[in-house]
Nucleic acid binder design. Structure first.
Lengths: 163, 163
DNA sequence: ATAATACTTTACTTTTTTGTAAGGATTTTA
DNA sequence: TAAAATCCTTACAAAAAAGTAAAGTATTAT
């Protein structure tokens, strides 16, 4: 489980466009220079972002790319999903079947369950974090399990929260 | 950002050993059959787990693998780190430098900052989840941001918690 | 001792991902 | 209408990851 190169570089390219806002266009080569990437590679990354609807392109002389929404309206989840797909494949158990036709745990897969929980958990962070947060270096504060237990106890709130 | 095949299959092999406990040995071929994997591949996965100290091997007739600690004492973080390394490379910015010698954002990299935060956040889930939790299908409940904000407000607790 | 069992290591092949190259299509400007 | 600028598409090359194969080493039972 790693952040891939395409995810990181793609995010960086999009942040360049987020910084200048939806009303400003930049060309591929401008973005490439800003990020220290090759023009063809930058082109590929922007193409992925365009197909996901995060940026728009205009061709011809004077053309370029602009971000389609403002930074506060794009989450890290939107970006990473566009660039790298979901953390857990939707049909994970039918894809990773080892040597067999079907996953040997197809009936009840505790591994798949826990990975799905992890994916949900990660998604919460990603959807809570917008490009604006990244540009402004806002850090979202998450509560550690022990902290909230303590607070709930102190506050006399019963600890029966849904996940 | 994806769970890799090695991470998933490696976890499954370790769970087989976790289920029978530290005092029971199973051979590679027994594990391979249980998980529907090839013997050589299973062998490779167990070798990785052994080098990480999560399982022990005994050679020769009657040999096999056993888990070194009981399920409650091994976390998902231990397992996934052994099989796939860290989510964010420690020297991420010096590795992903595009075409340049150094990352163009080396002085102050907001992307790296947010990815580090994500890694910390993920690590919390992974260290909170043990192999026993997976075997028993315990689900750890995490509080959503909006939920705890509401509770804190109701309880009159000031919302200044450290991450 | 020797054969059988079972792990270990190294190297190789296949597949996937990353990154590049080249020609094509579109728009603007003169 | 032609040239210049710019994005678009497809195919290819290189690198990394996944998975296999084969020969080696250690242990036990006979």
């Amino acid at each position: 489980m790693k952040i891939t190169a395409i995810e990181k570089y793609g995010l960086r390219c999009l942040l360049v466009l987020a910084k200048v806002g939806p009303d400003t266009q930049l060309s591929i080569s401008e973005i490439a220079v800003k990020e220290g990437l090759s023009v063809p590679y930058t082109s590929k990354l922007l193409s992925i972002l365009r197909k996901a609807g995060l940026v728009q392109a205009e061709r011809g002389r004077g053309g370029g790319f602009n971000i389609t929404r403002k930074a506060a309206d794009i989450t890290l989840f939107d970006v990473l999903t566009a660039l790298g797909g979901p953390l857990v494949e939707p049909h994970h158990c039918s894809r990773y079947t080892g040597n067999l036709k079907e996953c040997i745990h197809i009936d009840r897969c505790s591994v798949h369950d826990v990975l799905d929980s992890l994916a949900d958990y990660v998604q919460q962070f990603l959807t809570d974090t917008t490009l604006e947060d990244i540009l402004k270096e806002n850090k979202t504060v998450y509560l550690k399990k022990d902290d909230y237990k303590l607070i709930l106890t102190r506050a006399g709130v019963e600890n029966k929260l849904t996940g």
